[in-house]
Nucleic acid binder design. Structure first.
Lengths: 232, 232
DNA sequence: CACCTTACTGACACTTTTTGTCAGCATGGT
DNA sequence: ACCATGCTGACAAAAAGTGTCAGTAAGGTG
């Protein structure tokens, strides 16, 4: 079991470094010889962990997230499947594709018999009627949230008046059939939310922001007393 | 690597048998000695796989689903988190709890740095307004779908007329803010769907059904030309 | 180009882990 | 009481993992 453990740890070690790591560094870390590192890495790759090695550089893990072996009960796995199906129905094409991939991956990991259990638990009528169409890239917004990149918005308010402002995107909020972006508005100096279907144009500024005590998502949540576990 | 592989396979082997399996049976299957089986099982348990052994009986895996180590890209993991959050907001309490558990499990499995990436991607306003409340147990219906147990329904149709019928539950369908149950109606001898918020009473009959070519979910889907990947 | 760094491979002796065998105890079911 | 089975300890044999060394290939840099 010693080796198996080490293999997990190596993945963990590689994960969360944006620079390449040399075999020597790994050997030092785990107190093993470089030769053994090469052997370990090879076995990891065989197992399907997406590690890339380059001579003269080192090792890098593909920007991917490694989950160790886990067990779920029926309900949890059902949530996973249901959730992915819902996402597939209610977001944009890019994400829908990812949702399908996720579902396929997980299904394939189950034994034949278990797969049947999750057959047809839930279907989703496409929300084409109810959902107002938006014309900005959903995926791009999620990326901006992750990277904390400011967005310049051309937005129509309830009265149809068009305004422009720069906001710090903090989160996406799904309220009915409508997606909204929650952000800190630099114009109003306050939290605001923007319906995606009312955004005329979104420009990604390439400017990044840091959370401050006044502008952080946490602050907003606290101000709502939003502690009921609805946060992902 | 041989042993690590076998450990996975043993879990796979245990999974999907409702009767207990003896160590001897496992030893035969993998062509190893019984002693080794005991050692393997112990290591699996240490790793967290929920295996129960009883003297005089054999081994049983808790009704749980084991996922081998997997890698996801950002998008896929985001779908998982988003989906679970959506399920948490839009289904009943039981399932909401499972959704929270799922989210917690996955978050814990990620490295500290990665966790931040998935902070606050999406929030969900509780759908209390839009969603008509239902008074039957969502979880129980899902169980009936899984077990293929007939349900006796007291249902109010669009005109408010109350009818009773026995149906074979096939799937749950989420159409807007509304959940519906898709089933084969034994009264009408056809597929029908029933809004959960219009169900007055549901009785689980304890009677089970087998899919037939005429009454299967697949048949229904085929009749719709429903092949756009929206199925979980 | 020369030179350095690093990934990668093969071979072989050495070390550690895994395995099978055997012997015995504990427990659940009949 | 008896059987089937889980579970543990000990020890030698088998297998897998490891370090060392020697060498090749592929990036990067001056």
């Amino acid at each position: 079991m010693k080796r198996a453990d080490r293999l997990f740890q190596i993945v963990n070690f590689l994960q969360g470094r944006r620079m390449a790591v040399t075999a020597e560094r790994i050997a030092d870390e785990f107190d093993i010889s470089i030769r053994t590192v090469y052997r370990d890495i090879q076995d990891l790759i065989i197992t399907g962990v997406p590690i890339n090695g380059e001579a003269g550089v080192g090792y890098m893990l593909d920007k991917s997230y490694y989950l160790p072996p886990m067990t779920f009960d029926v309900e949890e796995l059902e949530v996973l499947m249901l959730g992915a199906a819902m996402v597939s129905s209610w977001t944009d094409t890019d994400m829908s594709v990812s949702a399908q991939t996720l579902i396929r991956k997980v299904r394939n990991a189950l034994s034949e018999r278990d797969r049947e259990t999750f057959e047809g638990i839930a279907l989703f009528a496409p929300p084409s009627r109810a959902r107002p169409p938006w014309n900005i890239n959903f995926s791009a917004i999620r990326r901006a949230v992750r990277k904390k990149e400011k967005i310049h918005l051309d937005y129509s308010d309830e009265q149809g008046r068009s305004t422009e402002r720069t906001i710090r995107p903090l989160s996406l909020v799904f309220v009915g059939p409508v997606w909204m972006m929650l952000g800190w508005c630099e114009l109003r100096k306050d939290f605001r939310h923007f319906r995606l279907d009312r955004v005329n144009q979104a420009t990604f500024t390439g400017e990044f922001f840091e959370d401050t005590p006044e502008t952080s998502l946490q602050t907003y949540l606290d101000s709502l007393g939003y502690c009921d576990g609805l946060r992902p």
